[in-house]
Nucleic acid binder design. Structure first.
Length: 271
DNA sequence: AACGAACACAACCGCCAAGGC
DNA sequence: AGCCTTGGCGGTTGTGTTCGT
């Protein structure tokens, strides 16, 4: 037997949400805050699965969501982050205030993926597609140049989007004290945990702020820093509370861009 | 104007990890 | 220590809209 269903499907609506359902959900969360998604539908008078409510709230109803087209800057940031993180949409979303993992995932699949392919870049590995790849002959050379440029701009992560375990640190108290407490972390949710912490309560998982230092590529390194990232195709250094020198990675870093001396990293294999 | 194809986005599904009992 | 519940994530599917013929 499989797992038990997350809710009593026989009595739940599915499919698109109606305006009335949205209003009920918003009203309920405004009054009671997020949390306990399982019981929320009943309490709010919704014939929906709790998961469905959570998703609707996170991806569509949250007041701090930014709607509308992605900007070029956001495009670039997504590409960079994806080259570092792979399909860790929630982590990527955490770096894009007002954007949700679902939105970014969709955007990636519908726009960016195609854009990269058109430039001759493999969207998964961020490497230039090989000669045998399906690149229109006439544009191959252009794509090479374009992809090289893009890789440079993107901080040239030449390694495949290797799985990386991210250790992260809470955001400096600040911004969004917005109603849902975690706002951007909400779904940005950042890797975890984030979600519905009710206002005033400590985030269940304080490890949230994925503050990536993306200056990893040789090109970027050469341009921006005196030291030798050039030896290391990728050193994941994000601010994690470790000061330079405390980390055991080789990058001991230099204070890239004056990062207040904080470095962090944590390759997957170190668990 | 009608039809089909392609695209864009919202929602669902199944799995996993964390926390509580 | 093990089981159960819950929340969260990533992949996939479904549906509405737009574009081209």
């Amino acid at each position: 037997m499989g797992r038990s269903p997350c809710c009593e499907k026989a009595h739940t609506n599915k499919g698109a949400w109606t305006k009335e359902e949205d209003e009920r959900l918003v009203a309920y969360i405004r009054a009671h805050g997020e949390g306990c998604w399982r019981s929320l539908p009943k309490a709010a008078g919704l014939l929906r699965c709790g998961k469905s409510c959570r998703l609707r709230w996170m991806n569509y109803l949250r007041p701090d969501l930014k709607r509308g087209n992605f900007t070029d800057d956001e495009d670039e940031l997504i590409i960079r982050l994806h080259s570092l993180l792979g399909n860790k949409w929630s982590l990527i979303a955490g770096q894009l205030p007002g954007r949700t993992d679902n939105e970014i995932k969709n955007y990636w699949n519908t726009h960016i993926k195609r854009k990269l392919l058109a430039r001759g870049i493999d969207p998964q590995t961020h490497r230039a597609l090989g000669a045998d790849a399906a690149v229109a002959p006439g544009v191959a050379a252009h794509h090479r140049a374009a992809s090289a440029a893009l890789l440079h701009n993107a901080g040239a992560v030449i390694v495949p989007a290797a799985p990386v375990k991210l250790a992260v640190k809470p955001p400096a108290p600040a911004e969004s004290s917005s109603d849902d407490g975690g706002s951007s972390s909400g779904s940005g949710s950042g890797g975890g945990g984030g979600g519905g912490t009710s206002a005033g309560e400590q985030p269940r998982c304080p490890d949230l702020n994925l503050n990536l230092d993306l200056s990893v590529g040789p090109a970027a390194a050469a341009a921006d820093t005196p030291t030798s990232h050039s030896q290391q195709p990728l050193c994941l250094c994000y601010r994690l509370g470790l000061r330079a020198g405390e980390a055991s990675c080789g990058c001991q870093a230099d204070d890239v861009a004056g990062q207040q001396g904080f470095r962090f990293f944590r390759p997957l294999e170190q668990g």
